Deep mutational scan, measured.
Amino acid sequence: NMTTNERRVIVPADPTLWSTDHVRQWLEWAVKEYGLPDVNILLFQNIDGKELCKMTKDDFQRLTPSYNADILLSHLHYLRE
């Protein structure tokens, strides 16, 4: 019986294949993992993996503070390698 913190996010390895639900799961995981403040996951609700991967730093900064944008982008970049 796992707690929420221990729950593994199971999403496709390639972020471009993510559904909007996968994006939400990834964001929820990242918020907990990195202790990100002020991430409004609802702002990302219509973004799927293909859109997420096209987003620039400016795009991320429209949805979340700069600090969060940096961490989310670097993790996304890591996943795409």
Rank of each mutant, 00 (worst) to 15 (best):
N1G: 06
M2Q: 13
M2Y: 06
T4Y: 10
T4I: 14
T4G: 10
T4M: 15
T4A: 07
N5E: 14
N5A: 09
N5Q: 10
E6L: 12
E6W: 13
E6D: 08
E6G: 13
R7Q: 12
R7L: 14
R8Y: 02
R8F: 08
R8P: 06
R8W: 00
R8G: 05
R8C: 07
R8K: 15
V9S: 15
V9F: 14
V9R: 15
I10M: 13
I10N: 15
I10L: 09
I10Q: 15
V11W: 15
V11P: 15
V11M: 14
P12G: 06
P12Q: 05
A13T: 15
A13W: 07
A13G: 14
A13D: 15
A13H: 13
D14Y: 01
D14K: 01
D14Q: 03
D14M: 02
P15L: 03
P15I: 05
P15D: 00
P15C: 03
P15T: 02
P15H: 01
T16V: 13
T16P: 03
T16G: 10
L17N: 14
L17V: 12
L17I: 11
L17R: 13
L17E: 14
W18H: 00
S19M: 02
S19I: 01
S19K: 09
S19C: 04
T20L: 05
T20R: 09
T20P: 14
T20K: 13
T20G: 05
D21Q: 08
D21E: 13
D21V: 08
H22L: 02
H22C: 04
H22R: 02
V23E: 00
V23K: 00
R24H: 05
Q25G: 08
Q25E: 12
Q25L: 14
W26C: 00
W26E: 01
W26H: 00
L27D: 02
L27M: 06
E28T: 10
E28W: 06
E28L: 08
E28F: 04
W29G: 15
W29C: 12
W29V: 06
A30D: 00
A30S: 07
A30G: 05
A30T: 09
V31F: 05
V31A: 09
V31I: 12
V31S: 11
V31E: 06
V31T: 12
K32Q: 07
K32L: 08
K32I: 12
K32D: 10
E33R: 11
E33F: 10
G35N: 10
G35M: 09
G35D: 14
L36V: 04
L36E: 00
L36G: 02
L36P: 00
L36Q: 01
P37E: 12
P37M: 12
D38S: 09
D38H: 09
D38P: 13
D38N: 11
D38C: 04
V39G: 03
N40Y: 04
N40P: 06
I41W: 06
I41L: 10
I41S: 06
I41M: 09
L42T: 10
L42A: 12
L43M: 09
L43T: 14
L43A: 11
F44W: 08
F44L: 05
F44R: 04
F44E: 05
F44S: 04
F44H: 03
F44K: 03
Q45A: 12
Q45P: 03
Q45K: 13
Q45Y: 07
Q45C: 04
N46A: 10
N46W: 05
N46R: 07
N46V: 02
I47Y: 11
I47M: 10
I47H: 04
I47F: 05
D48S: 09
D48Y: 00
D48E: 08
G49H: 00
K50R: 10
E51I: 03
L52I: 07
L52G: 01
C53W: 02
C53Y: 02
K54G: 10
K54N: 09
K54M: 12
K54V: 04
K54A: 07
K54L: 07
K54F: 04
K54C: 07
M55Y: 07
M55A: 01
M55R: 02
T56S: 14
T56Y: 03
T56F: 02
T56E: 09
T56I: 04
T56N: 08
K57M: 06
K57T: 06
K57D: 08
D58F: 08
D58H: 15
D59W: 01
D59K: 05
D59Y: 01
D59V: 04
F60E: 00
F60L: 08
F60M: 15
F60Q: 00
Q61P: 02
Q61L: 11
Q61M: 14
Q61A: 12
Q61E: 14
R62M: 14
R62C: 08
R62K: 12
R62I: 13
L63W: 05
L63Y: 10
L63R: 06
L63C: 05
L63I: 14
L63A: 04
L63K: 05
T64V: 10
P65N: 04
P65E: 08
P65W: 07
S66L: 04
S66H: 07
N68S: 12
N68K: 04
N68V: 12
A69I: 06
I71V: 14
I71H: 12
L72I: 05
L72P: 02
L72C: 01
L72R: 01
L72V: 02
L73A: 13
L73M: 12
L73P: 02
L73H: 09
S74H: 15
S74Q: 08
S74F: 03
H75R: 15
L76K: 02
L76S: 02
L76G: 01
H77A: 13
H77W: 06
H77I: 15
H77L: 08
H77R: 13
L79Q: 11
L79R: 11
R80P: 11
R80K: 11
R80L: 15
R80G: 06
R80H: 14
E81G: 15
E81D: 15
E81L: 14
